[in-house]
Design a protein around this nucleic acid. Structure first.
Lengths: 257, 257
DNA sequence: GCTGGGCAATGGTCTAGACCATTGGTCCAG
DNA sequence: CTGGACCAATGGTCTAGACCATTGCCCAGC
């Protein structure tokens, strides 16, 4: 398998060719179908194992295969959808026939890092409550979510969460606070090892980092949330309706709930 | 530099440590600052070049550095923001002090692939107009966008585009069609070599794939758009306001234009 | 002064291999 | 029957190196 000279004189790397071949083979196969091991592919195509690994890594990044040390490589299950508005993780999973779940893995009162302080309108090193949880679908970890709240404004969160109360129920029932608007950002990042371990993916796997800064009816910051979604397992969706003035593209929008 | 045993017995790969060290060194440096070459880092840290490459690749994926064959490695410029509603690429870039641009690189009448036909409500292999263009900010390629339209319903698009008319102006003025609602998806993919070449990144660089299927006031499909944004250069944003019923999270939304 | 060629420096692709960590199955002993 | 040890198979990390493609600089020739 040599780097091929295409009619346009652009060489195609071996690993890319192998990637495409493999993609062709696995598309349409049921999730869980075994993919040949690295060493077998290396022999079959007479390329080094490194070349095979590159191709497999890329397919894993795209969520087409799942690689498990000691076990092998398998066709992955399709990506699941998550509405950008994040109406409800639970509802979104249920709508796709998946069993949602979550587990709080860390709750702490800590000092706010710069970006957290900034987003919550606090002084540097102000005291914040940090809640970290893992989101599951059918028992499979899908996202790590970290919520930051002003500890002075919302005391006692930790204790309430310990008895299983929903965070937003706490905010509304105990503090009379409802988030009414938010800014969100979406970008690709790589998982730090801590999140990798929680999510069962490796440190070079791109994630979708979704951040949200929400405010209440008085315009005061309520929470700052960082959610790390597995890029190989998630697709975000949005429904838009036209509202605004003519533009280059459909302009303005209202998200359906 | 050995894989270190942390207090929790979790080994940290060398390449990850090097990645973090480099990240610490470059954070805050002005864009364009040279980063030491691979071979220098390999000597300095007494690790193989492959280990260095892995660390550098990861930093490039995250958009922290830019690697140029024959030239070297440099601190990258910060990610730019693109509103999810895609109100206007032009406006979004201008709002960030960037000079927007675009170039149509391919226009064709072609047969619809399955997904395109499905999205446009057409028969398999129906005739569609495909418009492919590259989006720039300050002359730097940022995204590749492919628009598909029903050729029977919207004939003559190719000729109109040849004289520089905006696609949406054509739809409205010639066909009386205005997209009023849309579904969008956002996910991470890897750039195919064709897009890599257009965007100046490599085939293992994650991209943000944003798809949009829009419909007119009669509910008929108007266009199907696939936009590949460089994951190392883009962050998507959304402004949400509360509309809906109580949920686990802020529910429903209206996007600002 | 300008242009083209040569060369060094750089990142990109690839080979070959060693060793490690994890997993699951099999076999044996209690 | 159950649990533990062993082993093969698998993916993960890493070394060492070769060769290629690209880039920019310097020098020589016109």
């Amino acid at each position: 398998m040599t780097a091929r000279q295409s009619p346009r004189e652009d060489p195609v790397p071996k690993y890319y060719e192998l990637r495409q071949w493999l993609r062709q083979q696995i598309d349409g196969l049921p999730p869980g179908t075994p993919v040949p091991p690295e060493r077998a592919l290396s022999e079959q195509f007479n390329v080094s194992r490194t070349t095979v690994r590159q191709a497999l890594h890329d397919l894993a990044v795209e969520g087409r295969i799942i690689r498990r040390q000691g076990r092998g490589t398998f066709v992955a299950t399709p990506k699941v959808n998550q509405n950008v508005a994040l109406t409800s993780y639970t509802e979104a999973m249920k709508a796709q026939g998946l069993r949602p779940g979550s587990r709080i893995v860390d709750v702490a009162i800590t000092e706010a890092e710069d970006v957290v302080a900034s987003r919550l309108g606090l002084e540097k090193n102000a005291s914040v409550t940090r809640v970290e949880r893992v989101r599951y679908a059918n028992g499979e970890p899908m996202a790590v979510e970290t919520v930051y709240l002003d500890h002075l404004r919302f005391p006692g969160i930790v204790e309430e969460l310990a008895v299983g109360t929903s965070l937003y129920a706490i905010l509304e029932e105990r503090f009379g606070v409802v988030p009414v608007e938010a800014e969100e950002t979406i970008e690709t990042v790589l998982a730090p090892p801590s999140a990798s371990r929680l999510l069962g993916s490796d440190a070079s796997t791109p994630m979708l980092l979704l951040t949200r800064s929400s405010r209440d009816a008085d315009g005061r910051p309520v929470e700052y949330v960082r959610s790390l979604y597995r890029g190989d397992r998630f697709r975000l969706t949005a429904q838009l309706t036209r509202e605004g003035a003519r533009g280059e593209r459909p302009a303005g929008a209202a998200l359906a709930t």
